[in-house]
Nucleic acid binder design. Structure first.
Length: 189
DNA sequence: CACGGGATCGTCT
DNA sequence: GACGATCCCGTGT
């Protein structure tokens, strides 16, 4: 919860095949097992897929949604506690040409990375990278605090696509940088 | 601009 | 064997 807000404004960096891409995190969602019915680890459900969420924080959980989209999460809690923060949108900062190529887009538009599936694709993140460390010296994915950053207000709302989750569906656990045009359009905010 | 549907496949029952 | 923590494009207004 706190971490999902602290991640706003931070830089998410990937370095695959010598291609450096950087995006400022502008939108996140918190998922907190065991009580959160929207979490894949609800009730501490432990499967081959979810097990990286139970490991100590500092690495990532990436999974495939709707057979098409790779969704990137930061695992945030201590050993045995399955908390994660979904990165829903980034503002491109560096490596824009690479991101456009990955997205197969001719020119820069806000839909380059507004939405969890597209922003993962822009950064080159796939399930193949699930479980990788964000903190190792050799990490290919990591998070940095930008040297300079504009102050911003945090906006919150309910999460997207979790209507099935009963009472958990109404938790205001979606956070974004107010007024940032790279935030996804889902459910207005 | 709002809505509707199709794409597409790993994961769990 | 069903179903998503989604996106995009088509249609109609």
């Amino acid at each position: 919860m706190q971490i999902s807000q602290e991640l706003l404004g931070k830089h998410l960096v990937t370095n695959f095949d010598g291609q450096l891409t950087v995006g400022k995190i502008v939108e996140t969602e918190a998922y907190r097992a065991p009580e959160d019915k929207a979490s894949h680890a609800y009730g501490n459900r432990l499967t081959p897929r979810t097990k990286v969420m139970f490991e100590p924080g500092g690495h990532c959980y990436i999974y495939l949604c709707y057979g098409i989209h790779h969704l990137f999460n930061v695992v945030t809690a201590s050993d045995g506690i399955a908390h994660a923060v979904l990165i829903r949108a980034i503002e491109p900062v560096w490596g824009i040409e690479t991101m456009l190529q990955r997205r197969n887009m001719p020119q820069l538009k806000t839909n380059l990375s507004a939405g969890p599936g597209t922003c993962s694709q822009a950064l080159g993140l796939t399930t193949a990278s699930s479980g990788l460390s964000l903190t190792d010296d050799t990490a290919m994915i990591w998070i940095e605090t930008p040297v300079v950053s504009e102050p911003f207000q945090i906006q919150s709302g309910t999460r997207v696509g979790v209507a099935y989750a009963e009472e958990s569906a109404f938790l205001p656990w979606r956070f974004s940088i107010a007024g940032n045009k790279w935030v996804s359009k889902a459910k207005g905010l």
